[in-house]
Amino acid sequence: MSLKNVLENFSYFRQDAESGGTHKYEHRFGMAIDLDICTGCNSCSTACYAENNLPVVGKERFEKGQAMHWMRIERYWDEQEFEGDFAEQGAKFMPMLCQQCGAATCEPVCPVAATYHTPDGLNAQVYNRCIGSRFCSNNCPFRVRYFNFWSYYEDSWPEPLNMQLNPDLSVRDKGVMEKCTFCIQRIRVAKDTTQREERPLKDGEFLTACAQACPTNAIVFGDTMDPDSNVSKLWMKHQVQRGPFTHKKEKANEELRGYRVFEELNVDPSIMYLERVRDTEV
């Protein structure tokens, strides 16, 4: 709290995302998810449960909408295909997880600054600081923030299942918000290793649990700031860029399948989806 600091750096403190911002990013982790090769097998979701100590809430609570799947497979049908009950076939899958937005709407509404932006371009949630006002979740257009409505840990891992909990991160108690972290514990380990070995982070040196578990390699994870990474190449190939929603793609080119969900809301998501292409006659 020093007045001198304010007066000297005032113009710096006034920079917003459009004018460059105040972030000094080391990495900006991102993803490219190819919906064309996603089979909706849910192994990403399962891997996420195992990696991130997600509680299994049981059927009853799941039906109430209190599930904790950071990574969920959303299923959509076209209206004509969807008759009566769930159609036998024709479901379209969409793995939905936290988009780690560059200008995240969840951040400015948190009253206690429990959610903030890391130098890795992540949208971090500080469990210890969270007071559970749940405004962040209400302001998330993707609805990918999950709240600990109960003390799930009490009955999610009956003995001896508690032995499989990941020791690298905490088990959350009731009353805090949580969400996908891009497996921040793995990022931490990788960054520590590179620091120790005094070398830059290699692409593919570590993967998130979902990317690792995907049997069809639909999820590509990497640093979008590194131009040589697979994910950057994919983003460039499909002409999707970071930053505010200003650029236009070549409309005519059918090869360009990349888009970001709710890009028009100007939240700068870090995940690019590749459109599904299907010949419906088949």
Partner: peptide, 15 residues
């Protein structure tokens, strides 16, 4: 004691 699940809130209905 139980958490806000007692109020039967759920993911879209945080408030």
């Amino acid at each position: 004691k139980m958490g806000l699940g007692a109020a039967a809130l759920n993911n879209p209905h945080m408030w």
